[in-house]
Lab assay of single mutants.
Amino acid sequence: KRYRAVYDYSAADEDEVSFQDGDTIVNVQQIDDGWMYGTVERTGDTGMLPANYVEAI
């Protein structure tokens, strides 16, 4: 699945990823209600991200 960031996010922990509004997130997997795991296409960084900061595309 592919998602697009709708807000900027700065990683708060080493297992999270930072991204900017408009970034595409690929290979996304749902972890639980609030978190997903995926790769930021622009940077190649992979990690956890907050589900409410992205939307499906």
Score class of each variant (00 low, 15 high):
residue 22 G to W: 04
residue 13 D to L: 10
residue 39 T to F: 04
residue 17 V to Y: 00
residue 27 N to A: 10
residue 41 E to H: 06
residue 26 V to H: 07
residue 55 E to P: 02
residue 45 D to L: 13
residue 36 M to C: 07
residue 54 V to Q: 00
residue 47 G to A: 02
residue 41 E to A: 09
residue 50 P to V: 04
residue 55 E to C: 11
residue 7 Y to L: 14
residue 56 A to R: 09
residue 15 D to G: 15
residue 11 A to E: 03
residue 1 K to Y: 07
residue 25 I to L: 10
residue 3 Y to P: 03
residue 17 V to A: 05
residue 15 D to R: 15
residue 48 M to F: 15
residue 25 I to P: 01
residue 13 D to C: 15
residue 4 R to D: 04
residue 44 G to L: 06
residue 18 S to N: 07
residue 20 Q to T: 10
residue 1 K to C: 14
residue 51 A to S: 12
residue 29 Q to L: 13
residue 48 M to T: 07
residue 46 T to E: 08
residue 20 Q to M: 13
residue 11 A to I: 03
residue 46 T to K: 10
residue 20 Q to L: 14
residue 11 A to F: 03
residue 14 E to V: 13
residue 9 Y to R: 06
residue 28 V to R: 02
residue 8 D to C: 11
residue 38 G to H: 00
residue 30 Q to N: 10
residue 27 N to D: 11
residue 40 V to C: 04
residue 27 N to L: 13
residue 29 Q to C: 15
residue 29 Q to Y: 13
residue 25 I to V: 07
residue 9 Y to Q: 02
residue 26 V to A: 08
residue 35 W to S: 02
residue 43 T to F: 02
residue 55 E to F: 07
residue 52 N to D: 11
residue 28 V to I: 09
residue 37 Y to R: 12
residue 14 E to S: 12
residue 18 S to L: 01
residue 43 T to Q: 01
residue 33 D to N: 11
residue 42 R to Y: 03
residue 56 A to Q: 12
residue 49 L to C: 03
residue 37 Y to I: 13
residue 12 A to V: 12
residue 8 D to N: 11
residue 18 S to K: 02
residue 33 D to W: 09
residue 37 Y to V: 12
residue 24 T to A: 09
residue 41 E to L: 12
residue 50 P to H: 09
residue 54 V to C: 03
residue 2 R to C: 12
residue 17 V to K: 01
residue 41 E to N: 04
residue 3 Y to Q: 04
residue 22 G to S: 05
residue 25 I to C: 03
residue 36 M to D: 03
residue 18 S to G: 06
residue 16 E to H: 12
residue 23 D to C: 03
residue 39 T to C: 09
residue 43 T to W: 02
residue 13 D to H: 15
residue 28 V to S: 05
residue 14 E to G: 11
residue 30 Q to E: 12
residue 38 G to N: 01
residue 41 E to P: 01
residue 8 D to H: 08
residue 39 T to K: 08
residue 26 V to Y: 10
residue 11 A to C: 05
residue 36 M to Q: 03
residue 33 D to C: 12
residue 8 D to T: 11
residue 49 L to G: 00
residue 25 I to R: 00
residue 3 Y to G: 03
residue 32 D to H: 12
residue 28 V to T: 07
residue 33 D to V: 09
residue 11 A to V: 02
residue 23 D to G: 00
residue 56 A to D: 11
residue 40 V to H: 03
residue 40 V to Q: 02
residue 16 E to Q: 14
residue 25 I to A: 00
residue 51 A to K: 09
residue 1 K to Q: 12
residue 50 P to S: 05
residue 10 S to C: 14
